[in-house]
Design a protein around this nucleic acid. Structure first.
Lengths: 242, 242
DNA sequence: CAATGTGAAACGATTCACAGCT
DNA sequence: AGCTGTGAATCGTTTCACATTG
């Protein structure tokens, strides 16, 4: 095996984040979130170093999978020792793009939209809900707190006319949109959002939506999960096997 | 190949629902929900018969996959013709266990719990939210509508003391529970629910929960979906590739 | 010498392609 | 003639197992 000029890489031992060595599967990225959450827990407990082995046992994961997932992005571990909790945590935050705030708009100021706007964990993390949009004049102009029974320790999010979305999306520099509208209007709302140049959408409507492939739409589908549970209950196995 | 006594099956041409020919994957069951939703749409449009081909094109699915998924449960199609929309719809409803109502309790009467309780699509489908549970005395005794800004066309769901869950779960014949509590209390809430004999849980807390394997826990994790979108936005590909 | 990083093996899900039925 | 139901081929994901390394 001859050593060609290009074989010498002056890089650090970590793969640079900007290089895209291969396509990372969604299974992997979702697990990265789980690893990050678990690391937060470990940091809280003061654990400074952990092996993939004990990490896996602690949070019931698979150690080989942890190593493989992490190895896509760099060599974060130390052989014979394990991973530095805090360093790995920071790496994951960067990989997931959580090192900066994302400005989120919510379309639909019904029960779900308001609950989302007031959901505490958004703010604790890297997402800021900066605007709500609705087409109901009774809601427009109010804030999420005036409409809801939420606690008073934050300012609430203003509800705008959805017709102003195209201009406001730009002005407010929205990066992400959550769709909390009825199924019937979900596709047209998405079309509007796409038209405004938004590339990341979280859809709560129980519908398969169509979008250009450079727009990432993630559907959180309550109905499907419920029906999946219903299927499970309907299986003879549930009771039969004691 | 000798014909033994047991080889003669007096069954219809459909696999009986009680037999478990092989383990059905979750990927398949989730798609069954999607097929059902699509069939509802077709019924509405008056389409009486459809081939897997046109079904796939209409809802962007894969026709071979549709046929394979359905074939796990019986021979629902007619060669040369396709599937009878209405008949297939009824089959899926039965397979998914949606031919009877499921009584659901929600633990946690915060923003999310209330939004869930007032969510219209539950009632439209086969799920009845019959009780909310909370540990906040300010909430206990109220109903979901008194606490929320929801419309007045239904009676609202009563909020009970979570300490009464074990007895009420039995009295109200709860079959499913939705966990809408903070992450910190999710595991202990689940333990209580499991202890009460509930076998199907929909978890909204951003946590990996532990449960016996005869209890099905489905986590709807907003945080993971958001972080997955954030990762997507952080990829150079999003803008770079024009 | 303990634990990573990683090819190779195993497993599982999707898609192909066609025999067989109506 | 047309479409289902399904083995076989393909593709992707997970797990194994070990050479490599601090």
């Amino acid at each position: 095996m001859s050593l060609r000029f290009n074989d010498f890489t002056p890089d650090t031992n970590e793969k640079t984040l900007s290089m895209k060595p291969e396509k990372i599967s969604e299974f992997t990225t979702r697990r990265l979130s789980i690893y990050l959450r678990s690391l937060n827990q470990l940091t809280l407990e003061g654990v400074e170093t952990i092996s993939s082995q004990s990490f896996a046992e602690r949070f019931n994961l698979n150690s080989a999978q942890i190593r493989k997932d992490l190895a896509y992005f760099g060599e974060f571990g130390v052989r014979g020792v394990g991973y530095d909790t805090e360093a790995l945590r920071k790496h994951l935050i960067e990989i997931l793009g959580l090192n900066r705030r994302h400005r989120v708009g919510i379309i639909g100021a019904g029960n779900l939209g308001l609950a989302l706007a007031n959901y505490k964990n958004w703010t604790a993390s890297s997402f800021n809900v900066v605007a709500l949009f609705d087409n109901d004049t009774a809601r427009i102009g109010k804030t999420s707190l005036a409409s809801s029974h939420a606690s008073k320790n934050s300012d609430g999010v203003k509800i705008y006319d959805v017709r102003d979305f195209p201009t406001l999306a730009r002005e407010l520099e929205l990066e992400m949109v959550a769709l909390a509208v009825p199924r019937e209007t979900a596709q047209s709302a998405l079309d509007m959002v796409v038209e405004a140049g938004i590339k990341a959408v979280l859809n709560f409507a129980p519908a398969q939506l169509e979008a250009p492939e450079d727009v990432q739409v993630k559907t959180v589908d309550l109905t499907i999960s419920l029906e999946s549970l219903s299927y499970f209950l309907a299986q003879p196995t549930s009771d039969e096997v004691k």
